[in-house]
Design a binder for these strands. Structure first.
Lengths: 338, 338
DNA sequence: TCTGGCACTCGGAAGCGAAGAGTGCCAGGG
DNA sequence: CCCTGGCACTCTTCGCTTCCGAGTGCCAGA
């Protein structure tokens, strides 16, 4: 077990390194933090920390930098979450309050997160998995062509064209619309298949084909839309990454374009509370030199989606975590209101 | 006026520089292109081209690189558009054919363009400006709460919540829905305001407030959605930009996040035919070291939106233009079909 | 008008040495 | 037993010089 002072030394190293982006040596440490001991003592502590794998030196006779393991310890034990100041909180709220629809909420959230953290922001659209159906609408566009519109309680709207096997009269359409809604409105997506199973039986033989087609399109939509979407922003902040650009930044940009990868990443993060994945803890190779801070957000008590930021492992964890948490909280509020 | 051979020299310089990314000298030129003259002659030509401002040397005693003006001449006079090969065309079509909805079409188009050109792709969503209304739907969510859904002929669906000043009965709702659709279905966005102007008068006094609210929300939606959206992709290709990263890439990433800037850029491009903006021809400062190749695409004869790529001024113009044109053509087809 | 030759310029690579930061280790003191 | 000051050692970094070569401009001759 590491002594209290060694932990403090580690904390100081992380803080300094995050600030200066340069390996930190024993002398600088004692000067900038009053640890109450001499550089020599700190050197011994540092040697111990290095043995344990918390820090490393890029070259002999250079200062130390934290390893992923060091950051991990820092995040778990040494760093708190830095709360937003009151003005910051007000700014967040004001900015998000101006949103006009769901897309806008997400877009604003991305911008906000990117600006607050000066890193790349990733916001997942509210998930439909736990969503409920608010309304299903059917519109007749042509005698044998319908449009199916699905409205969810999170404000999302999805539409699909349906080509009917046979013409479908207005009366039948109204009937189907009414029956469909009475069965699924307010119900969870996952319950829908069961609830509409026997619906075709209620219709005339002529219409059954169309009803079945509509239903299968609806089910498809429910499934497909579970493939969640996300929005990213603040990629320009990647340029603050380091001096060894091309090699570092490229895989990150590639990862950011692979929404599937990001969704998986967010999905793997714990469902409650904030998750911080540091460097190699990220399964995806391209993100091995980045840390991902993510948290769920939701309209009610439940988290309906995740948001977070991607930045260099050398990031201001307390500040970032504070911003991420605050933004998630306010987005949740906004969603609950609308 | 430049002699034929000097133009050939310029063409050769552009081609070589695009290929090698290094300033090209007189000797290398004569070796790689059989111009039929000696290096000394080429040197004279190069001096002339430099006097005219078509090429420049980064330092004394280095080869020449084309200037923006040089690229301009190259694009206007010296380069054709390289057509896609048959297999490439098939690949494009196959890839785009798999799209399930409008978002997917746009997303696939972006991916495709980015891959084909190995540059950053920008695709504008089909514009609503010239769109027509396919259907307006009103749904009652609560006694005094409606949802307005607008469906356009380009397959786009927009929704808005409407808080009514007074409860609005189902009968009135059906009435409004019917009247609204009979007036605006099939009409252009720009005609809608005029067409619904006197609609409140057809309703009972109690309902007029609600009707007005619905109408103004509808008009708002029409206007707001004219603020067009776009999708970008292939940003990882920026890493192939040059060796002087941080300074070059940062403003480009920033520009790419400013969708407003990009929309303006695309908007300024000519409405028909392909537009190539080279370096400083781009009004936006951050894009001064990039070229933008854009073209309109549309479902019918009319262009409904633009798409294009952003890349270094040192790009393969013929190839890029070929890819952009081909993709635009196929996207147009896809839109026309759906 | 083109060509070969030639002197010149200048950037980039390579080599070298001094400076400085940082370390590890050790002996001495509280 | 832990901390401290001192000291020798190691490497990186930086600036300097040198050298090489690519590429140029110019000129005289075909």
């Amino acid at each position: 077990m590491l002594s209290e002072r060694r932990l403090q030394v580690l904390r100081a190293i992380v803080q300094d390194y995050v600030g200066t982006e340069e390996p930190v040596g024993s002398k600088a440490l004692t000067e900038r933090h009053n640890l109450g001991v001499s550089p020599a003592t700190v050197r011994n502590d540092m040697a111990a920390l290095e043995d344990e794998g918390y820090i490393a030196q890029p070259h002999t006779s250079a200062g130390r930098i934290p390893t992923d393991k060091g950051y991990r310890l820092f995040v778990d034990k040494l760093a708190g979450v830095k709360p937003m100041t009151a003005p910051e909180r007000r700014a967040i709220q004001n900015f998000l309050d101006g949103a006009v629809d769901l897309d806008d909420v997400v877009a604003r959230t991305v911008r906000l997160l990117a600006q607050l953290t000066r890193q790349v922001a990733v916001v997942q659209y509210p998930s439909l998995t736990r969503s409920t159906v608010r309304h299903v609408e059917l519109l007749s566009l042509a005698p044998a062509r319908l449009m199916l519109v699905l409205i969810t309680d999170t404000g999302r709207v999805e539409q699909r064209m349906v080509d009917c096997p046979a013409p479908f009269g207005e009366t039948s359409l109204a009937d189907l619309r009414a029956r469909l809604n009475s069965r699924v409105a307010g119900r969870r997506f996952s319950d829908v298949p069961r609830l509409v199973e026997d619906l075709p039986e209620a219709f005339e033989a002529d219409d059954r084909g169309t009803v079945s087609t509509v239903l299968s399109t609806l089910l498809e939509t429910l499934v497909e839309e579970n493939e969640e979407r996300l929005m990213i922003g603040g990629t320009a902040n990647l340029t603050r990454f380091g001096h060894d650009f091309p090699l570092t930044i490229r895989p990150v940009l590639e990862a950011l374009e692979e929404h599937v990868v990001l969704l998986k990443l967010l999905g793997e993060a714990g469902d409650s509370g904030m998750t911080v994945r540091i460097g190699h803890e990220n399964a995806y190779e391209g993100l091995n030199s980045t840390s991902v801070v993510s948290v769920g957000y939701g309209s009610g008590g439940e988290a309906v989606a995740k948001l977070g930021v991607v930045g260099p492992t050398r990031m201001d964890y307390p500040g970032t975590m504070g911003a991420v948490r605050a933004v998630a909280r306010y987005v949740g509020q906004i969603l609950a209101e609308s």
